[in-house]
Every structure is written in C-alpha cells, then in structure tokens.
Design a protein around this nucleic acid. Structure first.
Length: 481
RNA sequence: CGGGGACUGGCGCAAUUUGGUUAGCGCGCUGCGUUUGGGACGCAGAGGUUCCCGGUUCGAGUCCGGGGUCCCCGACCA
C-alpha cells in the first residue's frame, strides 16, 4: 500500500528538508528572487483563502468589519509607545528615500499596525456611544528576520490583525479571551491541529501589551509553533495616542484596547502536523480540492458518452452536497502519475473510475490519511463520501492529539527537563516560580522558553523546576519556532 | 554579525585537480507515433554571454586579482 515518492526525503529522516521539499513539490510556494522572501503559489494561496473564508467569517459574524490602513508608518508614530518601539526596532524595514529625495522623516514598513491605526481611533472615538470599536485588517507585514524558512519565517508575510477599543478593562480582557477562543476553535476545528492555550510570560509578551495570550501547537520535531495570539493592551496605546472618550458621567477617559492576529505561519503548522512521506495531507475542511476523480481507461473508453456522463453526474452529485471536486482528465499524464501528484498535494479523497467500476456500478474510493481503498455502490456514493471526509477530519485531529499527549511531559526535576530538551523535546509541563531569571537561564541552557501559562492553573503547590523556590502553578515549556 | 559552502541550458549535476577543438549527462520542455488500474516508451528537436569586471596566456568554465549573489550552521525572531 505504500508508494514511495522518489523526490521527497522521508519525514522521519530529515524533517526540515522534508518540509521544504513538500512545499516546493506540492507547489504551495517557491523562493522569490529577493532574499528572505517567498512567492505563495496558487495552491498555497488557496489554503490561505480557506483561512480567510473560515476565520474571516467568524470575525465578521462577531461584528468586526474589515478595513485597510497604510503600509507606511512615520517613524515618530512608532516611537510613541516606548515598549513597542523597543520590541520592534531590531526588525524594522525603513524607507529613507522617496521620489528620488531623502525623506524628512523615515517611513517604517509596518511590522504590525497599532501605531498607524490608533491615531485614527483617536479621531473616530469621542463618546461612550462609539464603544466598543472594532476593526479587522487582512494585510502583509514586514519583519526583518535573518533566517528564512518557508511560511514560518520570511521577511514579509500575510496575516489578519484585529483591533478593538472598549470602555472598561474587564470588557477588553473579555474580548482578548474571546479572540483566543476564536483562534483555538479555528485551529482545532478547521485545521485539525490540537493546541494548548494560555498566557505569555513577561519575557514573551507582545511589546506594548499588558497581557498576551497564545494558542500553541506542537510540531513533529518537538518544537512549538504559535498559531494565533491575542493581546490585552490595557491603556498603554490609548495614553500614547490620546484615544479618549467621554463616559456617561461626562468624564474623559482613555479606552482599553485589544489586538489579535493570525498569520500565514499557520500554513506551515498545517503542513508539518499532518503531512507524511508521500507529501501533504490536508484536513477536508481546509482542502482546496476535497475529492479528485481520476478516470481510467483507453481513449476509446474515455470518449465514450456513457462513461463521460457517469463521471459528470458523480461530480454534480458531490457538488450538490457542497463537496469541492476536481476531475483529472488530462490525457498527457498516466494514471500512476496522477495518483502520486494528488497524494503529494494532500487531496483527502481520490475516486477511481474505470471499466471495472462501470461494470460493478460502483466507485473506488481511496483515503489519503490511511491509504484505505474501498468499493462504494453508486447510489450510496454521495452520502458515503461525505461520511469519509468527516471521518478523515476527525482522524487527523485525533492522530495529532495523540502525538501532542505523548510528547507533553510533566517534569519535576531539572535534570530530566534537560534530558528531554536534548532528546525528543516536546512540551514540558513544569512548576515555575515566576521569576524572569529562571526563565532566562532555562532558555540559555535548554533553548526552551515558556510557551504558555495555563489560564486556569491547577490548585497544587510545587517547587520551581529550576531554582526550587515555591511555585503555584505548572507552565508549558518548549523550544519555539 | 561570526563560521562554512556554492554559483555551468528551466531544475539537478559533470567537465576545474593537470588550461587545449564543437562545454556533456539526467530530469523537464517542443513535435510525431505507440501506450494508459501506481510517476510509460520510441524517434526527432529546441534551449548556454559557464555570476560580474579585470588580468595572465597562442588559447580560460578551468589559473590570478577584485566585486556580487545565494545557501547551510550559529546568534536574533512570530
């Protein structure tokens, strides 16, 4: 049942090369002729469009409209929030010349849009009646990273950033947590990637935020990848940008804000978590093509009217059920070639139709996740394929969840911590006293950082895995991407 | 920014050590024909300022000098 792909390195042999191979061979993306940048090809972009469709709908449904703000930010705007500029300065792209002249003030290419949006917020928000104020933007952003990794680390990437302003701290906190939950549901439900959620430590939180929340997933090489992030900004930016409103008592107050984002990085997670030695494996919910139909036979049969009708009827039936179908009737490719290509591209279900199927009044259905082949009688094909797609979605999630469980280690002892980090890695759940020094030392010695502090800590007491001081809760450590 | 490597048709490589005629191979591409249940085959073709600039030489892909770009490994990072 295993058909080896000659062109891809095995996932277990060289994980990062496998990852790059799959992206290039499945035509998701390609290296651009600009250092550190990538081209997202149509099949890869279709995945992003899937993200936009599902997540975009959730955002709109929750009453947040889309808008668009400028790519360029005057440098002085960025400087208004001290922590913010400090955090982003090392990775900024700055435009110093325009129209052949040196600019009076350099323009920063947005690394995130708080500082270009909030002057507008200050203008638009006057009264308690204007609150809550919510806006979302789909755009590209630039952060000058030094090492490129397709989808995970490129100078320019695409994302969605939501920004809200509220009358009270509680409301902002509620919003930030609701967005975290929105991301969790999307990542788990649509992308079939199990996650852990929590709060960031002081060292890891967003520059300028009061609190940062995160949705984290575990990759097969034992490193953690942030899948979405939500910040409670408190009044930090409101004070820097003078975003004030008059409350019901006529008092002038600064708003409380949130911002939250999810990037094309998530496509990297999707590839890593579900892919196998034959290439991509896409969860049906996000797959641009859910079912590919490969007709088999000689020219005479392919051009047979009855045969063609049979195939187009099947396509219509499936499409009626809302399934995304493609018929691969290219003459210039052999059957085996097509099987391999669609497996590489991760299409969840393949249907084979040839003379045998016509004779038996059935279709042959092959699942991408298990390789399982079955014959389904024609009258049942539509409902059965719907069921199989659903089952694949569940199966991928469960497989990933099993792996997450197996690679999450509860550890009480620092020697064991180190051993795991120098071996299989994964998440380490351990007590932490809360000090930044312990956190920094652990990072220095093991590369592990605190990925998430559980939102509802267990009520047990323990000792910090590093210094042995009393600690009130366990946190999740891992090496991050 | 430190350490290493590479640059030759679209892609992957050979020829460089020891300078020598027309720079070769595989994949891909074009045309025609035969094939079609797990990456088919035959025949015929197209495609190159060998990263750039300069030098040595009768002669440079190959030697020398300078420059550039990219990749990998570290540090940084979502």
């Amino acid at each position: 049942m295993e058909f080896e792909k000659k062109e891809i390195v095995k996932k277990s042999e060289d994980f990062s090369r496998w990852y790059t191979d799959v992206i290039l061979k499945a035509e998701l993306a390609d290296y651009a002729p600009v250092k550190g940048c990538m081209v997202i090809r149509p099949y890869g972009y279709a995945l992003w469009e899937g993200v936009q469709k599902h997540l975009g709908q959730a955002i709109k449904d929750s009453g947040v409209p889309n808008a668009y703000f400028p790519l360029f930010i005057p440098h002085s705007f960025l400087e208004k929030e001290k922590e913010h500029v400090k955090g982003f300065s090392p990775e900024l792209a700055v435009v110093t010349h325009g129209g052949g002249k040196k600019l009076a003030e350099p323009l920063v290419v947005r690394p995130t849009s708080e500082t270009i949006m909030y002057p507008m917020f200050a203008k638009w928000i006057q009264s308690w009646r204007d609150l809550p104020f919510k806006i979302n933007q789909w755009c590209n952003i630039v952060r000058w990273e030094l090492r490129t990794y397709l989808f995970l680390r490129t100078l320019e990437f695409l994302w969605q950033e939501g920004h809200t302003a509220h009358a009270t701290h509680e409301e902002a906190e509620e919003e930030a947590l609701a967005r975290l939950e929105m991301y969790r549901r999307f990542v788990e439900g649509v992308l079939a990637i199990p996650t852990i959620v929590g709060k960031k430590s002081g060292a890891e939180k967003f520059a300028g935020a009061e609190d940062t929340y995160t949705v984290e997933a575990l990759m097969p090489d034992g490193k953690a990848l942030q899948c979405g992030t939500s910040h409670n900004l408190g009044q930090n930016f409101a004070k820097a940008f003078e975003i004030q409103f008059q409350d019901k008592n006529g008092q002038l107050q600064h708003v409380y804000q949130t911002s939250w984002g999810l990037s094309t990085r998530i496509i990297g997670a999707l590839i890593m978590v579900h892919g196998d030695d034959n290439g991509l494996v896409l969860p049906p919910e996000i797959a641009p093509i859910q079912v590919v139909v490969v007709p088999i036979g000689e020219k005479s049969q392919m051009s047979n009217l009855k045969f063609q009708n049979h195939i187009s009827n099947l396509k219509t039936d499936l499409e009626t059920a809302g399934i995304r179908v493609k018929i691969d009737d290219r003459e210039e490719r052999s059957v085996g070639w097509k099987f391999n290509e669609w497996e590489l591209k991760g299409v969840p279900v393949r249907i084979e139709i040839g003379s045998q199927e016509i004779k038996n009044k059935s279709v042959t259905v092959v699942r991408r996740d298990t390789g399982e082949k079955s014959q389904i009688p024609n009258p049942k094909s539509q409902t059965e394929i719907e069921r199989i797609l659903d089952d694949i979605q569940q199966n991928l999630y469960q497989k990933a969840q099993k792996s997450l469980k197996e690679n999450t280690h509860e550890v009480g002892d620092y020697a064991e911590f180190k051993k795991i980090m120098s071996g299989p890695r994964g998440f380490i759940k351990a007590f932490w006293c809360g000090s930044a020094e312990c956190e920094a030392k652990i990072k220095e010695e093991t590369k592990a950082t605190i990925r998430a502090i559980p939102l509802k800590p267990e009520k047990t007491l323990g000792k910090c895995v590093f210094c042995g001081q009393p600690a009130s809760s366990r946190v999740f450590f891992a090496q991050a991407y």
